[in-house]
């Protein structure tokens, strides 16, 4: 029986804390090296461009519309309070919020429906049916609505037949419809991932305790699917705030949204500093959403 050997290892033979820490440092260094290509790339082609947007938003407007990095000013940001700009920003926020809410309500019911199908194969099939439009070209999907909503489109014809609506193309409702159509899958997928993962015995236990199905849903299912709700809402809200293709194709001059307004600054209006300030505003919203996302610990995408 040898609990302790009489020959203890000499000092230099024994591993010491320094060695272990050295091994850990080397492991950490390896991890960093794996990240380096993407890290460096994103710093050069994402972070620095992001910073430069803010720099340019304080630049002055040159004669050609190109910004001059001198005569620093806050004109671009000040213009955000213009009545015209305020209307556009307000309208965009409204559209983004409404779109998020619509996507959430319809998407939740939809994702819940898929996630509660009994057979695994049914769930998989339904999910694939969601994936197809998700992967299909966004432009094409938007274009389809242009066809349907135009004067001789089927939706317009249906409206005229029932006497309920006329041509909706180039109006705000058309933009709403297009955005809902475009972003619904972005809401459904994270929601599905979260609801699918729910341990249904908890819901059953909840039904036991709260008796009513509605209460069990509100107190158990809904909180448990929170990561999906947050992820889906951010994935819909932020991009719809800067939507460009949909309002451009389905909206009209009276429905200008932030995305189109920004593009105009870099095109016809030739006001890059102002365009930069507008983009900067969206970026700030995006960063806040990200902080919210990481704070709430959601990670389902």
């Amino acid at each position: 029986m040898t609990l302790t050997d009489e020959r203890k290892p000499s000092e230099e033979e024994a591993a010491n804390p320094e060695l272990e820490r050295g091994a850990e440092r080397r492991e950490a260094w390896r991890g960093f090296l794996h990240a380096v290509p993407a890290y460096a790339y994103l710093i050069v082609f994402f972070v620095l461009p992001l910073v430069i947007v803010f720099v340019f938003s304080f630049a002055s407007r040159g004669r050609t519309g190109r910004p001059l990095l001198e005569d620093w000013n806050v004109d671009g940001w000040a213009r955000l309070t213009d009545p015209l700009v305020r209307t556009i920003v307000g309208r965009s926020l409204l559209v983004a919020v409404m779109n998020t809410v619509f996507c959430l309500v319809i998407g939740y019911a939809f994702a819940y429906w898929i996630a509660t199908r009994r057979k695994q194969s049914t769930r998989t099939l339904l999910l694939i049916l969601v994936l197809i439009p998700f992967w299909s070209n966004f432009l094409v999907r938007t274009y389809a609505w242009r066809m349907l909503l135009d004067s001789d489109g089927y939706i317009t014809q249906l409206g005229e037949f029932t006497g309920l609506w006329g041509r909706t193309l180039f109006t705000l409702p058309a933009v709403f419809l297009g955005l809902l159509y475009g972003y619904l899958p972005f809401m459904v997928l994270p929601l599905y991932a979260a609801i699918e993962r729910i341990d249904w015995s908890l819901v059953e236990a909840g039904r036991d305790l709260y008796a009513s199905g509605v209460k069990a849903f509100l107190r158990i299912t809904l909180p448990l699917s929170r990561p999906g709700i947050i992820a889906g809402s951010i994935l819909v809200f932020v991009p719809s705030l800067g939507a460009y293709v949909t309002p451009d194709i389905l909206g009209g001059a009276k429905t200008t949204l932030l995305g189109n307004f920004i593009v105009t600054q870099f095109g016809a209006a030739r006001n890059w500093p102002f365009g930069s300030a507008l983009s900067g505003a969206i970026l700030i919203v995006m960063l806040l959403a990200t902080i919210l996302y990481f704070r709430t610990g959601g990670r389902t995408v």
């Binding site: 591993a15 010491n16 060695l19 272990e20």
Partner: peptide
Amino acid sequence: EYPTAGSIR
């Protein structure tokens, strides 16, 4: 895993 202290032979 590496020991924090001691030796393994």
